[in-house]
Nucleic acid binder design. Sequence first.
DNA 1: CCGAAGCAAAGACAATTTGTCTGAGAGCGA
DNA 2: TCGCTCTCAGACAAATTGTCTTTGCTTCGG
Lengths: 134, 134
Amino acid sequence: MRPDDSVTQAERVVLQYLWEVGVATIRDVRDELYPGGETSEYATVQKLLERLEAKGLVKRSRRSVPHTFAAKVERDTFVGRRLDDLAATYCDGSYDPIVSHLVRRAKLTDRERARLESLVDSLRRAAMPKRARE
Amino acid sequence: MRPDDSVTQAERVVLQYLWEVGVATIRDVRDELYPGGETSEYATVQKLLERLEAKGLVKRSRRSVPHTFAAKVERDTFVGRRLDDLAATYCDGSYDPIVSHLVRRAKLTDRERARLESLVDSLRRAAMPKRARE
DNA sequence: CCGAAGCAAAGACAATTTGTCTGAGAGCGA
DNA sequence: TCGCTCTCAGACAAATTGTCTTTGCTTCGG
């Protein structure tokens, strides 16, 4: 089962900060997320970054001290994986219900809705045969 | 902060079983998910159903004994909520990155891909929706 | 050289969430 | 009544998650 790279609440906040600023030290993150924080909060951030690194979501540069950290996976890629998880867990891997939801619930213009609907039809037809390789 | 209608692993399996069979008693669920299970497993299922009910995901009929249970939220609706959670949590409520992922990752034909891409362009120009929930 | 400050690393907790189980009591049919 | 099934409330164990302590290294100004 894949989602070894999903994140907890606290990890998520750190990851989002990295997406926002690009590169940061532990101190940077602590000062932003735990204003007024001291050494214990420093260690907390350190642990969260360590876990994110272990999940392959953050890369650490050890070339200098203090180490610098950056997201290894872009936000959109990460969201895409969560989307894949959703499809795999609940929809037998199919994107159909997800696209359907976009059609029904998202506040799209009529034209956008029509486009998505035709996509749904295409997906349905393509889902039947196994050898539709490009 | 986690949406209070998301489910845990064990809850999910129960919910999926309800989606599959429609209506079931605790005993039905236990016999399916814990083959050979006895009273302790019965209680486990009972607790999971109770929690699912508290989350508004399952409805219980107390009109007869034993009570019967059914999903209160359809699978696609549920998946849609998770999708909304994703968009709200990571994309500031925008569906843009999600549609983008469908373009890049989903195994679509070239024509389908082109359609989705033009949808993405339209979405980019339009004001992005906030998520709505009944 | 000394000591203070900043840091990395490891691991120990505490808190919370999740999964499982026990026990008491009601209802019902044999 | 006895035996069975059920509901309900809550206790508990296990796992996950968030936080903190400790240790020892390095660097740098005096």
